[in-house]
Every structure is written in structure tokens, then in C-alpha cells.
């Protein structure tokens, strides 16, 4: 049974951590190599990893998807999508997708003459599901060796930790103030019931013995 408990706890931790890792913003220092618009059909498997059509447009089963191609300083490649989250989830309230595409196109550079940029994004790149991280914003930096401090993540996670601590303390206080006394009373009441049952048992064995003896008198008479 211990295995069940720990498996459950680690599963829940994994899901919560994965959800936070997907939804919270991350920063990449990259060199933009190009932008493109492709037609994308979403299946059941990867539909949840895409956002909705641009704010104000109609919804269909396929639509044009803006992509941003980028290269890491070590040569690796990353592809971002560029979609409106508008009023939906995650609550980035991103409406300026076309503007971002324009800004990114302005920063396209070659390997010979690189222009470095920091892309803020959320989401995962998975080739098997064909899902891309969603680029939120882009800004130019002078070199690939910038120190990036994730301010939003720090503040957000600290607030979440404080709120969880507050909830935990409230539950503790509530338990001490209300539930423990009731449990104590329940425990005492149960002890009393047990004592009564024992007393009745003693009486019954006395009664039972006498009843059996009386029955026995009938049997021997027959």
C-alpha cells in the first residue's frame, strides 16, 4: 500500500510540475533565421497544444499558422509558433500576433552577421506531436551572453508558495479548533459503547447459560 501512496504523490507532482513548466514563460536567446505561415490541420492528439484563431476571426478545423524559425548560439534549431491567446488560456492576453511577426521579420539575420534576440515563450516543442512553443514577445540583445532573470516566474511561484502555506496553516488551525475535539469526543463515546457492550456480554453469558440450561431441562424431559 505504501507503493500506491508514493506513486500517486509522484504522479500528481509530475502533472503539476509539467503544467507549470508548460504554462509559465521562458526565455531563449536565439538568432532569428526566418518566419513563415503554414496551413495546419489539427488532430485530436495535438489540438490542445494550439491556441485559437486570431482574436476577431472565425474558427475552423484548419487555419494558417505563423511560425518563427530560430537558431541557438550552439547551432541547434528551434521553431516557435506565433498565435493569439487572446481571452483564452493561458492568460497571456496576447492579441498582437501579426505585430510580433513583423518585429521578428525585422530581426532576421544570417550566421555570418548574427543579430541576437531574446524570445519569451511558453509551451513545448515535440516533433512527434508537431507542437511548437508559442512566442509571446521578442527583443533584441547585443550578444548571446546576456543574463536573463525570470522575474515573473520568481514572483508568481513565490506567491503560489505563500498561498499554499496560508491554506495549510488554516487547515491546521481548523483541524485543531474543530475536528480534534470532535474526534476526542467520538473516541470517548466509542469507549463508552465498548464498555457497555462488555457489560452486556457478561450479563448475556450469564443469561445465555441459564437459557441453555432451561432448554436442556426440556430435552431431558422428552
Amino acid at each position: 500500500m505504501r507503493y500506491v501512496k508514493w506513486t500517486l504523490i509522484s504522479l500528481i507532482t509530475l502533472i503539476v510540475f509539467g503544467f507549470a513548466h508548460y504554462t509559465l514563460p521562458q526565455h531563449d536567446v536565439v538568432r532569428i533565421t526566418g518566419t513563415e505561415v503554414i496551413r495546419q490541420d489539427f488532430s485530436g492528439w495535438n489540438r490542445i497544444f494550439y491556441a485559437q484563431p486570431d482574436s476577431g476571426n472565425a474558427v475552423g478545423i484548419n487555419r494558417d499558422l505563423r511560425l518563427i524559425y530560430a537558431a541557438y548560439p550552439d547551432g541547434g534549431v528551434m521553431v516557435y509558433r506565433n498565435e493569439d491567446t487572446s481571452w483564452g488560456w493561458p492568460p497571456y492576453f496576447k492579441f498582437d500576433t501579426s505585430n510580433l511577426q513583423g518585429e521578428t521579420a525585422d530581426l532576421v539575420s544570417t550566421r555570418a552577421a548574427p543579430q541576437w534576440a531574446v524570445i519569451t515563450h511558453y509551451g513545448w516543442r515535440n516533433e512527434f506531436l508537431s507542437i511548437y512553443p508559442n512566442a509571446i514577445s521578442v527583443r533584441q540583445v547585443d550578444s548571446p551572453d546576456v543574463t536573463i532573470i525570470p522575474w515573473f516566474n520568481i514572483i508568481f511561484l513565490t506567491l503560489v508558495a505563500l498561498i499554499l502555506l496560508w491554506i495549510y496553516r488554516k487547515i491546521q488551525k481548523f483541524r485543531q479548533a474543530r475536528i480534534d475535539p470532535v474526534l476526542e469526543d467520538l473516541g470517548k463515546a466509542w469507549d463508552k459503547v465498548e464498555d457497555q457492550a462488555d457489560a452486556m456480554g457478561d450479563r448475556a453469558s450469564g443469561l445465555w447459560g441459564r437459557a441453555l440450561a432451561w432448554l436442556g431441562t426440556w430435552r431431558s424431559k422428552k
Partner: peptide, 12 residues
């Protein structure tokens, strides 16, 4: 909060 997020995401 929502208004701040909209400003930060779109106009900064």
C-alpha cells in the same frame, strides 16, 4: 491584473 497583462503582452 488583466489590464496590466494586456499592456505588458501587447504594448511593451
Amino acid at each position: 491584473v488583466v489590464m496590466t497583462l494586456i499592456y505588458v503582452s501587447n504594448y511593451m
